[in-house]
Design a protein around this nucleic acid. Sequence first.
DNA 1: CTACATCCTCCAGTCACTGGAGGATCAAGC
DNA 2: GCTTGATCCTCCAGTGACTGGAGGATGTAG
Lengths: 135, 135
Amino acid sequence: MAMLMIGELARRTGAKVNTIRFYEDIGLMPLAARTDSGRRTYGEADVRRLKFIRNGRELGFSTEELKSLISLSEQPDRDCGAAAAIARRHLADVEARMARLAVLRNELEKVAVNCDGGRMADCQVIETIADVGSH
Amino acid sequence: MAMLMIGELARRTGAKVNTIRFYEDIGLMPLAARTDSGRRTYGEADVRRLKFIRNGRELGFSTEELKSLISLSEQPDRDCGAAAAIARRHLADVEARMARLAVLRNELEKVAVNCDGGRMADCQVIETIADVGSH
DNA sequence: CTACATCCTCCAGTCACTGGAGGATCAAGC
DNA sequence: GCTTGATCCTCCAGTGACTGGAGGATGTAG
């Protein structure tokens, strides 16, 4: 298994180099092993972990939540109620956001088509955003 | 039309008092009129504008995008192509996020039910988040 | 007239990055 | 063996969008 340098890890996960170092600083990624000259090296497990982190972040989990989830997963004998609780807390939030996004998407779709070339006075974008969520 | 104090505006829009002042600082809300003693006063137009801003923010528009949208809407004779363009740029993003949230929601739902009481070794939360979006 | 809520300004802190300066190291080509 | 360019290192300052608190003035109800 070939060791990866930080730049390659970045390419494989879509995270920026600086972001990976930042994750190490805050303990979200483990302290990386180093070459003799001090360069960080990574393996496949790091690729998986970082992909997990990036996905989690984009889906709205905080770094602290991800830390809990990871440290939970590293204690395979304890029960997973805690992980499920974090997930469930997130579920309601996710559903609410989806509902509002759905409304917005439909309105934006209409607007993006109708609006082009018209005058601002007839533009629906502003009204649309003002009204989403006041359902 | 009764004038509102900042606290009442906050209550009606869900924004915090400090956030409203912050929006004034960065020019997202206009400089509020003041009473003799220096307190900010607001009217119905401010309620609408702030609701628009809060919704826009929660739906992922940046404060700069909202500023553009607002200043566009204040020039009703110019064409609304620019507003539509901002909306369209957002549309693709919104759709991508919805798709991933949908996958996540379905998985979290399964997991939140199955997982409770099990051992971490069998827990799907981690796998689920690691895989969403890698499809 | 005394509480107490609400307002004011100013400023420091938070979260999750992002970017850059200044310098070392490495791999490839001449 | 040497230069060039990419990549790496550390450290630190900045960003966006707030959030919270200190310290003090003002308004209102009993």
